[in-house]
């Protein structure tokens, strides 16, 4: 009985995914020609920013790499803001205000990320210390 239920559940889940995928999976690639700004400098800035912004519906992909519709929306939004003369940090702030720190692929330096940024440095110092201590023998 139990396995029967399990299979039933699995089938439902799979059908659901197939259904969802037909809704979302249109065959497109990331940055599309119609998005690209005419001003090369501005486009460069947009590309750099997009490489640091996470695609919220993907796994570990930047919006620059992602073909999800939401990523495209964000790419267009970033380009619009650049055209409006916004500075890079203003755009980052705008995005984190809306989506939180989760959207940044490079986590900001905060109290909660202190360990993340300083521990590697600390490990390095400890490592060097160990080598020196050991080599005195």
């Amino acid at each position: 009985m139990k396995t029967k239920k399990l299979i039933f559940r699995k089938i439902i889940v799979i059908t659901f995914f197939i259904f969802i995928s037909t809704l979302f999976l249109k065959n497109v690639i990331a940055v599309e020609p119609d998005e690209i700004l005419k001003n090369e400098k501005q486009e460069m800035r947009a590309r750099i920013i997009s490489k640091n912004i996470r695609c919220m519906v993907c796994q570990n992909q930047s919006i620059d790499d992602s073909n999800a519709p939401l990523a495209r929306d964000l790419r267009l939004l970033i380009r619009d803001q650049i055209k409006d003369g916004k500075k890079d940090y203003e755009i980052y702030n705008f995005l984190t205000d809306r989506y939180g720190d989760f959207i940044l692929l490079k986590p900001p330096l905060k109290l909660s990320t202190l360990a993340l940024w300083f521990l590697p440095f600390l490990f390095f110092i400890i490592g060097i210390f160990v080598v020196f201590k050991y080599s005195k023998k």
Binding site: R54, F102, L105, K106, A115
Partner: peptide, 24 residues
């Protein structure tokens, strides 16, 4: 290791979520 598990720790311990990606 730190970069891989840090987002999980943050998510479990605070109400926040962070991403640790290539730039880190």
């Amino acid at each position: 290791f730190l970069g891989t598990i840090y987002p999980l720790l943050i998510e479990a311990l605070t109400s926040n979520k962070i991403s640790v990606g290539e730039p880190y």
